[in-house]
């Protein structure tokens, strides 16, 4: 299996002087194609910071983030925006969607940014809606969808751009356990059937139970890397 993401001695600090805290303190980890991995750890352990650094949402103070061999740590402006658009899918905790756009338009949005032709876009949106079990609900705006349905649309949007990896930061945090389990089953299914690579940041037991690999983080360092 090829390596999708590799971090090398990644370090990110917040504050200054005596208040300086290393949220991520020299983490080196690699994620392979098709993995279903969860970064776990207590609150403040640095898992979300690590996910932000991997996703190019934050800049490391030291170290490198290699995505398909390309270092994204120094990218800024349009370059990092375009890179995220084309290579990384994001699912956040909540309010993932643009409220004034319908589910269909939310999924289409990222492809519009990519410049995908209209016919291809439409076909892919319908395909994605079908994959996440929301066929026929594309016209609804986020406010007209349940929390679980909204997260499904977020999954569909994340997949729509054909990314190398999907990063999910606490995707079930705002869902009840049943809906959360259904969403995770869907993602696991997409991982198994389509070979999509998922990387979670979580302390949700349901995700941990489904993950193939658990990267335990504490105080900004990898404490344990557990492959099941």
């Amino acid at each position: 299996m090829s390596i999708v993401i590799e971090t090398q001695n990644l370090r990110r600090c917040y504050g200054r002087g005596v208040t300086l805290v290393a949220a991520v303190n020299g983490i080196s980890v690699s994620i392979e194609q098709g993995e279903f991995t969860a970064i776990i750890g207590p609150s403040g352990s640095g898992k979300s910071t690590l996910l932000n650094l991997i996703g190019g949402l934050d800049q490391p103070d030291e170290g490198r983030v290699l995505l398909q061999g390309q270092d994204i740590a120094g990218m800024t402006g349009n370059a990092i925006s375009d890179f995220r658009r084309d290579h990384i899918g994001f699912i956040f905790q909540a309010y993932n969607l643009i409220p004034v756009l319908s589910a269909h338009e939310n999924i289409e949005y990222i492809m519009l940014l990519q410049g995908v032709p209209k016919l291809n876009r439409q076909a892919r949106v319908l395909e994605m809606l079908g994959l996440v079990g929301l066929k026929g609900l594309g016209h609804r705006r986020p406010a007209e969808l349940s929390g679980g349905q909204q997260q499904r649309v977020a999954v569909a949007r994340a997949m729509a751009s054909k990314p190398d990896i999907i990063l999910a930061d606490e995707p079930t945090a705002n869902l009840d356990s049943k809906t959360g389990a259904e969403l995770l089953d869907l993602m696991r299914q997409l991982n198994a059937e389509l070979g999509l690579t998922f990387l979670f940041s979580t302390h949700d037991q349901m995700i941990m139970a489904r993950a193939q690999r658990l990267v335990h983080i504490k105080d900004g360092v990898v404490e344990q890397d557990e492959v099941r």
């Binding site: 349009n78 925006s81 995220r84 658009r85 899918g89 994001f90 956040f92 643009i98 940014l113």
Partner: peptide, 16 residues
């Protein structure tokens, strides 16, 4: 703010 941050996170350019 959150919505704009998400739009930017998923690849919307600053100019957009």
């Amino acid at each position: 703010l959150y919505e704009l941050a998400i739009a930017k996170a998923i690849g919307t350019r600053p100019a957009f």
